[in-house]
Amino acid sequence: MKSYQYKTKIQRKFTKLLLRAWNNTLRRYERIWGTDDLAYVYGEQANIGILAIAAEKAGGLPFLEFSTEKGKGKGHHQGRADLQIITHSGDCWDIEAKRVQRKCDAPDLEECIKAALNDAVRDVKNISHRSDKAMGIVFVIPYGVTMSGNEWADFEMMMMDLTVLKADFSATHLCKTDIWANTPHVDCPGIGIVGRYVFK
């Protein structure tokens, strides 16, 4: 993993294990497929799929895009949950995700991330029969990054400022230089993930 930051030691072990597996899963995709495409430049569901693969690699059992009840009272309805992971220790995590793809130097990037994280947290809280442990996450895909510039370093620094992002953890993944130089997404060489825990 290029970098990892957490605000508290609560749940750090599970999150770090999952995010290391996420980073390694992206590395595998890049080694096999990177000069043709990069897996993380696609939509929210594609990134949830990558995280589900990582969950399995980390010893968990992922369950994707399943039907569930959402809301309360008049707002109660059938909906879909993004991801549930049962860990090797038997804990169950519900995860709702959003995706932000913006120019790395967009002046409103931080605000877009915070708004998306608030939406993801609201969505996970809206699951009627939510597990005791849950998290809202945002996949952040910056573009406009150059190999010779400081764009990635600036992006990474922003992603590590959990106080500003109002997050509990974050991580970034940067494509290896030899693959980055030959990918069709040359200005989009990495991805960040930021999240906030939700406990009952």
Score class of each variant (00 low, 15 high):
K2W: 15
S3K: 06
S3A: 09
S3Y: 11
S3Q: 14
Q5C: 01
K7P: 00
K9Y: 01
I10H: 04
I10V: 08
Q11M: 12
F14R: 12
T15V: 14
K16W: 03
L17P: 00
L17R: 06
R20P: 06
W22D: 01
N23P: 06
N24V: 14
N24E: 12
N24Q: 14
T25A: 13
L26E: 04
R31G: 00
I32W: 00
L38M: 05
Y42K: 03
G43C: 10
Q45G: 10
N47W: 06
I50D: 00
A52F: 08
A54F: 08
E56W: 04
E56H: 12
P62K: 02
F66H: 01
E69H: 04
K70C: 13
K72M: 09
G75Q: 08
Q78S: 10
G79M: 04
R80V: 14
A81G: 15
L83I: 02
Q84H: 07
I86Y: 07
T87D: 03
H88K: 10
G90E: 05
I95C: 10
Q101L: 10
A106E: 13
P107Y: 13
D108W: 04
E111N: 09
A116W: 04
N118F: 13
A120Q: 00
V121T: 08
V121N: 06
R122E: 11
V124I: 05
K125G: 00
N126L: 10
I127G: 02
H129K: 15
R130G: 08
R130L: 00
R130W: 01
S131C: 14
S131D: 12
D132I: 02
D132F: 03
D132T: 05
A134E: 13
M135P: 00
I137M: 00
V138F: 06
P142A: 12
G149A: 14
G149F: 05
F155C: 07
E156C: 11
M158G: 15
L162E: 05
V164F: 12
V164Y: 11
A167E: 04
D168C: 11
F169N: 00
T172K: 08
C175Q: 09
K176V: 14
T177Q: 05
T177M: 06
P189S: 11
G190I: 09
I193P: 02
Y197H: 13
V198A: 04
